[in-house]
């Protein structure tokens, strides 16, 4: 680990001031950044501890929830309002990592966690455009079981590893950011980037930008929602595929729907093609599969992940069927 200076911020203004500069980074629960520093994937010279900033989960005037970025994953998952009004978010968080990690990890940190591509982690022995721009991508022709099938580029085929973010994408969450130029918000779906020719940039945030909160807008459809994660062991593994879905039925017809996929792209993948294909349709296996087919029509599987479009399709169909029946709380 490169030597660094540890600073603790007691206010957002402090944090933004202390965290300015290319070599600084914000420190939440440390569950990813400490590992990245130890592996020398990251070499920050200053870490600004922002865990003492707002961790509150409060009701918004509009009837949604505002989650302080320092809230732990556990705090969000166990929050009564999240459990009852946005169950997919609780479930997504609970499907991720382990209880110990969820107790440490913050919401802000979760959004900024980096890929689990093993070539990205292999600082000495592998080429990775995300870690070292311009060096090449060893994953494209190597082990790429957990890698992207949508939206990848020649430069990078990594996936975003978060479960929570998949639900937040589906829930139309809003990210509150404090930067050098003051406060701003952006839709969650615009936070993470596709790799293009700059896979080193995971998000649109500028250096020194601090995520202060996540806002969940009121969303009736979310009350009937869930998260299903498919992985290589029963627990404590990153997703091969995950589906966050919410549905509102009007009799047998799908009145409204929200869908996002994890494990398929460089960002949590909002299913912008599948959703319109479902709205107003009669719920059926065929309709579910057709919606998935629309979403994955452009899928570009790699050596080890050719199973993903079919797995994602089946998983989506099963989740929607269950939600349509009302079996999921």
């Amino acid at each position: 680990m490169t030597p660094f200076t540890y600073l603790r911020a007691d206010t957002v203004n402090d944090a933004v001031r202390l965290g300015a500069g290319e070599t600084a980074a914000f420190l939440g629960g440390g569950t990813n950044i400490v590992d990245l520093m130890r592996e020398t994937v990251a070499r920050h010279e200053t870490l600004v501890d922002v865990t003492r900033l707002s961790a509150a989960v409060t009701e918004t005037a509009e009837g949604g929830l505002l989650i302080g970025a320092a809230a732990t994953n556990t705090a969000v998952a166990e929050h009564h309002g999240v459990r009852t009004r946005y169950p997919m978010l609780s479930r997504a968080i609970l499907a991720g990592a382990s209880a110990q990690i969820r107790n440490m990890a913050t919401v802000g940190g979760n959004l900024l966690q980096r890929t689990r591509c093993t070539y990205f982690y292999d600082t000495d022995g592998s080429h990775c455009n995300k870690r070292a721009p311009g060096t090449g991508c060893d994953a494209r022709e190597g082990f790429n079981r957990i890698h992207a099938i949508l939206g990848a580029s020649d430069a990078c085929v990594a996936t975003h590893p978060s479960d929570m973010c998949v639900a937040l994408t589906a829930l139309d969450a809003v990210v509150h950011v404090e930067g050098r130029d003051g406060a701003r918000t952006l839709p969650f779906g615009e936070l993470h980037r596709l790799p293009g020719d700059r896979p080193d940039l995971d998000t649109v945030l500028a250096a020194g930008d601090l995520i202060t909160a996540i806002e969940l807008p009121p969303l009736g459809v979310a009350a009937r929602s869930t998260y299903r994660k498919v992985r290589d062991r029963a627990s404590y593994a990153f997703a091969l595929i995950s589906v966050a879905a919410a549905i509102e039925m009007d009799g047998d017809r799908i009145a409204d729907v929200r869908i996002a996929f994890g494990g398929v792209a460089h960002k949590p993948w909002r299913a912008t093609k599948a959703e319109p294909a479902l709205r107003g349709e009669l719920a059926s296996e065929a309709v579910f599969r057709a919606a998935a087919a629309a979403e994955f029509a452009d899928a570009r599987p790699l050596r080890d992940n050719a199973f993903k479009p079919e797995l994602a399709t089946r998983t989506l169909a099963a989740v929607l069927a269950e939600l349509a029946k009302g079996d999921v709380a």
Binding site: R116, Y121, D122, S126, F143, R233, A234, S235, Y236
Partner: peptide
Amino acid sequence: RIMNPSLAEYHIPVHLD
């Protein structure tokens, strides 16, 4: 090169398995 030199990427059974 061994590419999953870690207990996160080399899976062994967890309690739920």
